[in-house]
Design a protein around this nucleic acid. Sequence first.
DNA 1: GTCTATAATTCGATAGAC
DNA 2: GTCTATCGAATTATAGAC
Lengths: 186, 186
Amino acid sequence: MTTRRTSDTTKTAILRAARERFAAQGYERTTIRAVAADAEIDPSMVMRYFGSKEGLFDAALAVDLRMPDLSAVPAAGLPAALVRHFVDRWEGDPADDALLVLLRSAVTNEQAAARMRAVFATQVAPALAAALGPERAERVAGLVSAQLLGLALARYLLRLPGVTSLTPEELVTGLAPALAATVSAP
Amino acid sequence: MTTRRTSDTTKTAILRAARERFAAQGYERTTIRAVAADAEIDPSMVMRYFGSKEGLFDAALAVDLRMPDLSAVPAAGLPAALVRHFVDRWEGDPADDALLVLLRSAVTNEQAAARMRAVFATQVAPALAAALGPERAERVAGLVSAQLLGLALARYLLRLPGVTSLTPEELVTGLAPALAATVSAP
DNA sequence: GTCTATAATTCGATAGAC
DNA sequence: GTCTATCGAATTATAGAC
């Protein structure tokens, strides 16, 4: 073991710095030079490990929503549990920029938008199906997702005063009835 | 009157082309050269009329939501009227890219995010206040805005299948109860 | 594994002729 | 009002030394 960093350490450091930059500045304004400077390595190392700026971006888009097992939640508590999970997920670990990277990029970048659709198809939809049954989940998954995305957009990206001024608990009590109305719609 | 275009015609053509480019590609990928080519003028004309790329962008961000007079709508019909208006606004005139420019840019650009907050403060909030009274409007404006933004995000930007598959009428009937639950929350 | 040097583009902005 | 010509800066990506 030398003092020289291992391949894995360097790669992780690059990815961490890249997420931070992509989250704060978006794809275009993020430069490989800046990422390398943050990670305290040479710009050419980024190319070596990720092939191209696009390859680095693709790696930074990997997101795990860590959806809980909603089949254990009583139907009446599902809306509140959903809102609570997403608020926790967004505000839990400030150093985890993956969510921010994905949402921010998905709006201007088709590559990222496709990833976002995949995340909802493979993580959100199955979790809802476990709680609501497949046919009802399929019917409401879109509108439920839209509402959760709207919350994230308004609070964490646009910072609308009427949304940032609420506490996490107020978000849950304010938005759970709306989700409930969507879930139990005819 | 010569065949030479008037100042106003040229300026309008530039702005129209700029909106199209900004909507489709975002701020950084849009080049003054491309906008000028679309408008069939010389790139230097863009600088002449708008000073800089940022000046052009600022002009392209001007948006009128054309909010209807909601004081005439009975309280029970407010949620449906809101959803219907926004869906109409988004799907009404496909050549009007202003909404798309604003929303898409606001996610990665602080200048645009500030404009978005201003639009909600000066157009959405007053319309809600006319229908709900000032104190209730102030309490729910944030979450109502978040839900309407979530719809636009999921359907027109991310194109989540579960949302794009719905007809405008299904959007109204599916989302109005959710808005109603938020408006009448304790 | 890490770095230097540089190639090859591309863009915003300016100066100035007509 | 419109266009030509160009400057200066910044970027991704590559080639190759150590």
